Simulated scan of single mutants.
Amino acid sequence: MALVGCGSGVPSASVSNEDLSRRVDTSDGWIRSRTGIGARRVSGPGEPLTALATQAAAAALAHAGWRAEDLDLILLATSSPDDLFGTAPLVQGQLGAVNAVAFDLTAACSGFLFALITAGQYIAAGSVRRALVIGADQLSRWVDWDDRGTCVLFGDGAGAVAVEACAPEATGLLGFRMRSDGSRNACLTLAQTDEQQPLLDGLTSQRGGFAAIQMNGQEVYKFAVREVPAILAELLESTGTAPAELDWLLLHQANQRILDAVAERFAVPRERVLSNLAAYGNTSAATIPLMLDEAVRDGRVQPGQLLGSSGFGAGLSWGAALLRWSGPGAATSPEA
């Protein structure tokens, strides 16, 4: 599987730390010192998740030089769909990707990495030739804007990566690991509300709805700084890769202190740790592809470079992948 195109889509409105300080008891210094976040994008009227995901997908298609009808698969990693029955088909319809099967995959902040690995397995099995993997979330819908412990963290956005079949020696997915631990689920939740409605005499039914995001920030931080370096170390050892061989660390953008801790563990210089937290905050499943697109477009990430990537978050779930960016036109397999 070669990674041959990328794109992104973000809301037009940016909410700064100073803006938030007019709503809750916080400050730019307080937020930056604890998270590294300076602003976040927040969706407004006419900016549903489908629109952001479609914008990112269309940009990735254009970057790869593909037509929408060339697609075989669209995977949308999201925990905040416009339609609980599935938002990926809406994206497929808006793109005009008439030959692609499309479905959602939910794994919160690990979602994009899990979806990318899933697409890789379809391609390796020979059942899919070209796929779009999209990470998109709109957690501003589910934030309690009066809770300064969570409202400062999350933003909205979408990123997409185009992947296609290639010769084995040109693969962009050199190895991966995935983990889940449901016993720690309560650390970070967007849970269904327990509201009942009358149905018949003596019988009620549950009314659909979800509560605001709840998070034990200290426990999530401890989980991330322990598990992310461990799973990356396991992956690097299994692939025979030394940390010094990595051109970039491409991690889920949750907290700058987490990024710094992982970099320190592997002695990766700060300038080789990709970070756009200051401008976007935590966009959940969108953070990795959004960051990749930015770094490819500005020339930091070049074809052939090696990236150590990790997604982690609610579930709890986490994973790691060793990726090589190929760039447009890089696939060499006769099937591609």
Score class of each variant (00 low, 15 high):
Gln92Ile: 04
Ala279Ile: 00
Ser205His: 14
Gln92Lys: 11
Gln92Asp: 03
Pro89Trp: 02
Arg34Gln: 12
Gly208Thr: 09
Gln192Ala: 15
Tyr221Asp: 11
Asp156Gly: 03
Ile31Tyr: 07
Ala263Tyr: 05
Arg130His: 05
Ala60His: 08
Gly7Met: 10
Gly327Asn: 11
Ala233Arg: 13
Val133Tyr: 08
Thr283Trp: 03
Trp248Ile: 03
Ala53Leu: 11
Pro334Ile: 09
Arg184Asp: 12
Ala212Tyr: 14
Ala119Ser: 05
Thr332Ile: 06
Thr241Asn: 12
Thr189Trp: 00
Leu251Tyr: 02
Asp28Arg: 08
Ala336Gly: 15
Arg270Cys: 07
Thr204Met: 10
Gly240Lys: 06
Val161Pro: 05
Trp248Pro: 09
Ile31Gly: 07
Thr106Cys: 09
Ala263His: 05
Val268His: 13
Leu259Pro: 08
Cys109Asn: 04
Leu139Tyr: 15
Glu18Arg: 13
Asn282Ser: 07
Gln92Cys: 07
Glu164Lys: 06
Leu232Trp: 03
Val143Pro: 01
Gly135Ile: 04
Trp30Thr: 08
Asn216Thr: 04
Leu139Val: 10
Ala211Asp: 15
Ala53Cys: 11
Arg272Pro: 10
Leu153Gln: 00
Arg272Leu: 13
Trp325Asp: 11
Ala39Lys: 06
Leu61Ala: 06
Gly96Asp: 02
Gly44Met: 07
Gly86Leu: 11
Ser284Met: 01
Ser310Trp: 04
Leu71Gln: 00
Leu71Arg: 00
Ser127His: 12
Ala77Lys: 01
Phe223Asp: 01
Arg34Ser: 11
Ala286Tyr: 00
Arg184Ile: 10
Ala320Gly: 09
Gly126Gln: 09
Ala13Cys: 08
Leu274Glu: 04
Phe176Gln: 12
Arg141Gly: 02
